[in-house]
Amino acid sequence: MSSPCDPQYAPAGDVSAALMLVDSRLKAIYDGRTEVDPERQLLDRQFTASLGPTGAQDLLDGVCTIIFMYMKWLRMACEDHGKNVIEYVVPNLVTSMGRMPKSIRPEAVPTMAGLVIAAGTGLSPSLWRQQYGDWTREEMNPLEATAFLLAEVINRITDDQDFATRLIDDALSSADAY
């Protein structure tokens, strides 16, 4: 039986723009910058404002697509080692988010955990979230952090700081070939 949250019904969104945000956050952390640079915050706000309402929705859908793709890769990697992706990823993700109180309010953590669980079970994160209403402003940082944290897990597993970005970039390149 098909689910209304099946990824085939979900918009992919602007995956390139979403990947740019995640990759720039990864690079900042790898370069040793743990605090968000005020100039970077201003550029992010200007970029997001320039998207307009439909562009902002495309960016949200793009981030959800990236989360889905990361969880699909993690699910396959876990299955290869006899592990359950939900058991392996979600507790660490929730713990990491709990350590980020400036960026992620505690009430957003269950939503992000649910989003990752949905993706880990093969459901579209954006369609899963859509069931509960529109995205809120308070969920934007946690959503970006979720994609970032999943990318970081993948990079640590592969021992390659660019693997998660290349994973999405390669998928985009393959899609462009069709």
Rank of each mutant, 00 (worst) to 15 (best):
T54W: 08
E152T: 08
L74K: 01
H81V: 04
G133L: 14
C78D: 05
R33Y: 08
M76D: 14
G82E: 00
A164Q: 00
M76R: 04
I67N: 04
S96N: 09
V36S: 15
D37N: 09
T95V: 15
I104P: 13
Y132I: 08
G52A: 00
D160C: 02
P91S: 13
I66Y: 02
S124L: 14
E144V: 12
A108H: 05
G98Q: 11
T65M: 02
R105L: 02
S103L: 06
Q46P: 00
V85P: 04
G32F: 09
G98E: 11
G120F: 03
L149C: 07
L43T: 12
D61T: 10
I168T: 15
E107S: 06
E138N: 05
A119N: 02
G98L: 09
I86Y: 06
P106S: 03
L42N: 12
E79S: 06
D44K: 15
K72F: 14
F163D: 00
M71C: 07
I66F: 00
Y88I: 04
E39R: 06
A119Q: 01
N141C: 07
T95S: 09
L149E: 12
G122V: 03
I157S: 15
D31V: 00
I157H: 07
R99T: 12
K72T: 09
D31P: 12
M97T: 06
R166A: 00
Y132C: 06
V90D: 12
R166H: 10
A118R: 03
Q41Y: 08
W135G: 14
G133W: 10
I67Y: 01
S96G: 14
G98H: 15
M97I: 02
P91F: 13
V94A: 10
Q57F: 13
A108T: 14
P106C: 15
L42W: 07
I117P: 08
R105H: 15
L43W: 09
R105G: 11
A56K: 04
R40I: 15
V36E: 14
I66V: 03
F148G: 00
Y132W: 08
L149H: 13
A147N: 02
K83Q: 11
E152P: 03
Y132L: 04
F68D: 10
D160F: 01
M69G: 11
T95Y: 12
